[in-house]
Nucleic acid binder design. Structure first.
Lengths: 90, 90
DNA sequence: GGGCATTTGTTCGTATGTATG
DNA sequence: CCATACATACGAACAAATGCC
């Protein structure tokens, strides 16, 4: 690509964009605790990225404790007030 | 691109093989319009692929308008003469 | 009406190959 | 060489509709 788009904002890697979007949605309460966030496939389509990229964003959210993932069901927003007993044993 | 890989073989992805096999069966009339194509599980066993791979092949067939899928029942060959009112605007 | 098998739909977990910077 | 990204593939579990008994 012989072009550098005049981009004053940092390029922000694709997974960062997905991460930002999800974080904002959660912190703004658009996705309530207990609710499911968009599936990986949906994130792929919505942001035009590959599944691995969407997964990376979700993984960061999980590591930050904002969400919990259940196999075959989806990824859900954790309740920040309720200590869901991961560390701090109960 | 420093190199054009001298790759005379096109590996043809697994889902392509399944897709080809189904397409041939349909176009040769071995599966008649209205009839059901093999279930996803059957395609998996027959071709030795995972379900996602079989599903990908079927999805392409559906997008091409050769078949229609009904939840809980199966996937059926469409009648090319009978316009079932999707595309080909008539 | 209920229970069960079949079938498609959905979702996450993991791995591999390729391309690019 | 390595990190990022994409496409494909296989595996496993859950969910829902259908059809038969």
């Amino acid at each position: 690509m012989p072009e550098s788009p005049p981009d004053p904002h940092r390029p922000r890697a694709p997974y960062m964009r997905v991460l930002d979007a999800l974080t904002v949605d959660i912190e703004a309460g658009r996705i309530q605790p207990g609710e499911r966030i968009p599936s990986e496939s949906e994130l792929c389509e919505r942001h035009g990225v590959a599944r691995e990229t969407a997964r990376r964003a979700v993984r960061v959210l999980r590591e930050r404790g904002l969400v919990e993932t259940e196999w075959g069901r989806g990824t859900f927003v954790r309740d920040p007030s309720a200590d869901q007993g991961r560390e701090s044993g109960i």
